[in-house]
Design a protein around this nucleic acid. Structure first.
Length: 674
RNA sequence: GGUCCCGUAGCUCAGCUGGAUAGAGCGUUUGCCUCCUAAGCAAAUGGUCGUGCGUUCGAAUCGCAUCGGGAUCGCCA
């Protein structure tokens, strides 16, 4: 356990109060609003009330009866607050020693008894990652790093959703193009995103046309089933307008029609080559895309048709490779990849459904099956346990075609997920949108009797990211990818570096590292629960975001050390002497910096326990900021006297260690020069 | 309509196990490189913490109500 000066003092007073007054509640410490009042403060109101004494009287008693250790220099009482000031020299000597004696400052074994799975990203292999799901990647990555820094065994997994119905049109389109020997000139996942957007639109247009046919609209002869040409648009509009108002389908169909017309023209504008080429291929080669899609999905789910399996795997692997490439740019890595299709082929889905059926936890609606979420939650005490008082809606897990839906595989997957790593905890870093399906999985596990497993699985949810003024939509090929942000950020950064004397190669390297950390930091620093409207300009602006600010503080610190020999200062020697000598604090900037450095270990623990990786990011910012202030206010190598030089050199070494730990936790690369 | 999340400075956000005068960055204005990297520092500007009521010695923080924004609620994941 970490012993902090703050905690020591707290325990000292607390123990006194417990012994003398048999105090029951905990003592709380806070920071005084201004430096003159001291460094640590105890509001006495609550406990004074419990002990039935006036706050000031209690304060007097504490002051007169406790003999404070040397580290406390001043004790005072002010309006019910007991304020204490540290002896800066003793405090700093102690902090420096703690920092220097650890290989990695802040690393500890708080979580060493845990084995934790972090599942993150798990994006659909239908296109590139975009900043929406990338937010999950960043959060999951840092969460994993944090747990691992605190001693937990961490296993980072990616669940590949390769079975979704939406993959089939992509696979169909991909092979239509492949047969034409078309060369792919861009990143695979981006390419697939274009194919997916096109094919899905064709499918929807077909469905719309069929729907309108049912309502009595007649499509023209010789017009493609998969596109809305001008005559289509006109006759559809007229037809829909002339439908009687009371027709229930009218409004929705009209909306659908308008949306598709818009999407079609958007895609023609954005990705003309792919869209038009695929349109003609699909029109001439495929009679009925919808039934082909269903056939493909069914066949892949069964996994018996080798050719189909190969086709799906080829496409999904291509997408996945693209995702991994993107993630690696940002120092984000996975240990294992689990394929949804493997879960389906394990043959365990049907027995699982049967079991739920036997226990009467499924509701039938035609061929469709619904999980009786509320019944399970009620009967098995889930509602009481997690104090849920509202009614949980049922979830569809098998559709009316008899096709099992995503949650079915997810349930089976989760039955085994914990075993795969012998995990004590599992965090699924998944968008908030998935709240209900995630709850359904847990409830299904309850229903299946795996209560213990269910309780160890947590949905770490984060809000979605939108672009300013619009939503991101894969089906409209409208999203911002981390890759393009990376390129933009690099360009911005290069304009700054150009003024310095770096070689082309160095420039490139530096720009890459800064771009990656800046984007990552920009996303990480925000509360996961806040929905974000993403401003590309701001994400990429080196002045706006502070990823560079952090790296700059590190580079500045290193640069001081690298110049030490020129000033005849032997850093190694100074470090060796720290155990014997007392350190000096002269200026306020130094004092603020030391106090922050002292907090680092507890910030990490708090961040991990409260599942707030963003708090680590924001702390790092404060620390870097305090260092910049120190840098400006306190010359190190040219300090007034040798003692001060020593203390400040140790300060620099300490801040470097602090930043190294924090960078490791956030997956930010440090730069020696920038 | 039910459920969940969010409303803090012109903009983007910290602060929320209740604590003293609510903090950063961007923006606007002004200083600081003969001195360890100016991607920095210092200063000015800017807030009835959505609104109301309640609990409390004390509320941005807790409770209730209300308004506004977002997500989700039977066949997509």
């Amino acid at each position: 356990m970490i012993s902090r000066p703050y905690d020591e003092i707290k325990h000292l007073i607390e123990n006194y109060l417990k012994k003398e007054f048999s105090l029951k509640s905990d003592l709380i410490w806070s920071k005084p609003p201004s430096a003159e009042l001291g460094d640590i403060s105890f509001p006495l109101f609550n406990i004074a009330k419990e002990l039935k004494i006036k706050p000031d009287e209690l304060g007097e008693k504490i002051i007169s009866e406790i003999s404070f250790p040397d580290i406390i220099e001043k004790v005072s009482l002010q309006g019910g607050f007991l304020n204490l000031a540290f002896n800066r020299s003793i405090f700093v000597t102690q902090v420096f020693q703690t920092i220097l004696e650890q290989t990695k400052y802040g690393q500890n074994s708080t979580m060493s008894s845990e084995r934790i799975i972090v599942e993150h990203t798990s994006s659909n292999p239908t296109g590139p990652l975009h900043i929406g799901n990338f937010r999950g990647s960043v959060l999951g990555d840092v969460l994993g790093r944090l747990f691992s820094f605190l001693g937990a065994a961490v296993n980072v997994r990616y669940y590949v959703n390769d079975l979704g119905r939406q993959i089939a049109p992509l696979v169909i389109g991909y092979f239509l193009l492949k047969e034409t020997k078309l060369k792919i000139k861009e990143k695979g996942d981006l390419w697939l995103g274009k194919v997916y957007a096109s094919m899905y639109t064709f499918l929807e247009i077909q469905q719309l046309k069929q729907k309108l046919d049912l309502l009595g609209w007649k499509s023209q002869d010789g017009v493609s089933l998969y596109s809305l040409d001008e005559t289509d648009l006109k006759t559809m509009q007229d037809f829909l307008n002339n439908l009687p108002k009371e027709n229930k389908e009218k409004d929705n169909t009209y909306k659908w029609y308008s949306k598709l017309a818009r999407v079609q023209s958007l895609l023609i504008e954005r990705i003309p080559e792919v869209y038009e080429k695929l349109n003609s291929l699909t029109s001439s080669r495929i009679d009925d895309l919808e039934s082909m899609t269903n056939q493909y999905v069914k066949s892949y789910q069964e996994g018996k048709d080798k050719l189909i399996v190969e086709k799906f795997r080829e496409v999904t692997k291509m997408a996945l490779e693209g995702h991994v490439e993107t993630l690696n740019l940002f120092e984000i890595y996975h240990d294992d990849f689990d394929w949804e299709s493997d879960v389906a082929w394990s043959g365990e889905v049907q027995p699982m459904l049967d079991k739920l059926e036997d226990k009467n936890y499924l509701r039938h609606d035609g061929k469709a099956r619904l999980l009786k979420n509320d019944t399970i939650a009620e009967e098995l005490g889930y509602k009481t346990k997690y104090s849920i008082s509202y009614e949980i809606p049922d979830s569809i897990i098998v559709n009316s075609e008899g096709i099992t839906l995503y949650p079915c595989r997810d349930i089976v997957y989760h039955l085994h997920k914990l075993e795969k790593f012998n995990a004590s905890l599992c965090y699924n870093v998944i968008a908030k949108m998935q709240q209900l399906p995630q709850l359904a999985v847990r409830l299904a596990l309850y229903g299946l009797g795996s209560t213990d497993s269910a309780d160890r699985i947590h949905h770490f949810d984060y809000e979605y990211v939108s672009l300013i003024g619009r939503k991101m939509a894969g089906r409209e090929f409208d999203y911002v990818t981390p890759d393009e942000l990376f390129v933009l950020a690099q360009e911005e950064i290069k304009t700054i570096i150009e003024e310095r004397n770096y070689s082309e190669e160095e420039q490139q390297k530096i720009a890459q590292k800064i771009a990656a950390s800046s984007i990552k930091y920009h996303i990480l620093k925000m509360d996961p629960q806040k929905s974000v409207s993403f401003d590309v300009k701001k994400a990429v602006d080196p002045n706006e975001n502070s990823g560079a600010f952090l790296q700059y503080s590190y580079a500045r610190a290193l640069s001081i050390l690298s110049r030490s020999s020129k000033h005849d200062i032997d850093v190694q020697k100074i470090l060796e002497s720290t155990k014997k000598e007392k350190q000096i604090i002269e200026k306020q900037a130094e004092w603020e910096l030391v106090k922050l450095m002292e907090e680092l270990p507890s910030i990490l623990i708090k961040g991990a326990k409260s599942l707030r990786p963003d708090s680590v990011a924001n702390f790092t910012y404060s620390l870097a900021s305090a260092f910049h202030k120190f840098y400006d206010a306190c010359p190190v190598l040219k300090a007034e006297n040798p003692e001060l030089i020593k203390s400040r050199v140790i300060m620099v070494v300490s801040i470097i260690k602090c930043l190294e730990s924090l960078f490791e936790v956030m997956g930010i690369k440090s730069l020696e020069k920038m």
